[in-house]
């Protein structure tokens, strides 16, 4: 039962990633693509959470924390590159 619900959740997250990729390919400016990148990272955090429940390994959650850090850093460096503040 729980596994079914979590599978549906996983499917929904993948659907949202597909929509985000549509915006990534469409996005008129670079900033739109950076937003898409950020949201893909955030969605991946949820994916990792669900996978770590399904595999029953708590250790996978460390990787999700690294993802949070990564999204922050990458967005900041790209934003600073764009506004010529690097």
């Amino acid at each position: 039962m729980i596994n079914t619900i979590l599978t549906i959740a996983l499917a929904l997250i993948f659907l949202s990633i597909a929509i985000i990729i549509y915006r990534f390919m469409l996005g008129p400016s670079s900033v739109d693509r950076v937003i898409s990148f950020d949201m893909m990272t955030i969605a991946s955090i949820s994916i990792i959470g669900i996978i770590s429940y399904m595999s029953d390994r708590v250790i996978y959650l460390d990787i999700a924390t690294v993802y949070g850090l990564l999204s922050f850093l990458a967005v900041i460096i790209i934003a600073k590159y764009l506004e010529k503040g690097l």
Partner: peptide
Amino acid sequence: RTAPIIDGT
């Protein structure tokens, strides 16, 4: 099979 790390699982 699963990851090569020994813990509760």
